[in-house]
């Protein structure tokens, strides 16, 4: 076992338990402290973590104007993570979740067919979405029941409940992969991704968030694209990249 493992054991052990999603009002570790702890990462891992956060966090995706650019960026990041298949799976799953939410929003906006889904969608479910466009759960309801539930919440204009549902889905993905890693780079990356979500949620003011989310959605749906910013569960209160400066 290389000495680097000892360094990662110390790093992971120095990070406080984040707890369950929605269970805390504040993050247990500040951004400043987290940046300090992440200084223990190997330089190559620092670069990879920055890429993962950029492609999964809303603020990173918001920098792109076109969905195709987001998809290209995600594909490049996944290729870069060739030594970490679990992280590849996580990034791909996150993009697929975004694609499903984007499809739900496009359909609610009156789009009658998926159209050129390759230009705004990513991953395994594109063909399924295209051929089951009229089905509430895109034909995925039997093993992804949350899609049909999100559809119902979207129709009811209950955006906050839908955000909770999609965040829970993302958190579950992180938990599943996180169970396979305890003291390695993957464990650190998963911790940071969870921290980003918890930190975003801790900054929510429910009433303000509702107004802001609705205005964002209206603005976004007026434009041609829907996979990127407006489809992401952890929409921002600002557009600064989480942990910006931690990876320099």
């Amino acid at each position: 076992m290389p000495s680097r493992s000892h360094q990662y054991i110390a790093l992971v052990a120095s990070l406080p338990h984040l707890g369950k999603l929605f269970s805390r009002k504040e993050v247990p570790i500040s951004e400043y402290r987290l940046k300090q702890r992440l200084a223990m990462l190997e330089p190559a891992h620092t670069r990879l973590l920055r890429e993962i956060v950029e492609v999964t966090a809303w603020a990173g995706v918001a920098r792109y104007d076109q969905d195709l650019d987001v998809i290209r960026h995600a594909t490049a990041v996944i290729a870069d993570l060739k030594d970490y298949p679990d992280l590849q799976e996580l990034v791909a799953s996150r993009m697929e979740t975004r694609t499903l939410i984007a499809a739900l929003r496009r359909r609610k906006d009156g789009q009658e067919a998926a159209g050129d889904i390759q230009s705004w969608g990513f991953g395994r479910w594109c063909a399924q979405i295209r051929s089951n466009w009229s089905d509430p759960g895109f034909g995925l309801g039997h093993f992804m029941p949350w899609v049909a539930e999100a559809h119902r919440q979207l129709l009811a204009d209950d955006h906050i409940a839908m955000e909770r549902l999609s965040l829970t889905q993302v958190f579950d993905q992180l938990d599943q992969v996180g169970a396979r890693h305890e003291f390695d780079f993957e464990a650190v990356a998963i911790y940071v991704l969870r921290w980003v979500i918890v930190e975003r949620w801790s900054r929510y003011d429910q009433s303000e968030a509702r107004v802001r989310l609705e205005s964002l959605l209206h603005a976004a749906l007026e434009g041609p694209d829907a996979t990127g910013p407006d489809a992401d569960p952890d929409y921002p209160e600002d557009t600064s990249l989480p942990l910006e400066g931690a990876f320099s």
Partner: peptide, 17 residues
């Protein structure tokens, strides 16, 4: 030596938190 290094690394990390 190996075992103490593993446990000690975790202990040092835990002390930070």
């Amino acid at each position: 030596a190996w075992g103490c290094a593993l446990g000690g690394s975790a202990a040092i990390g835990a002390m930070l938190d």
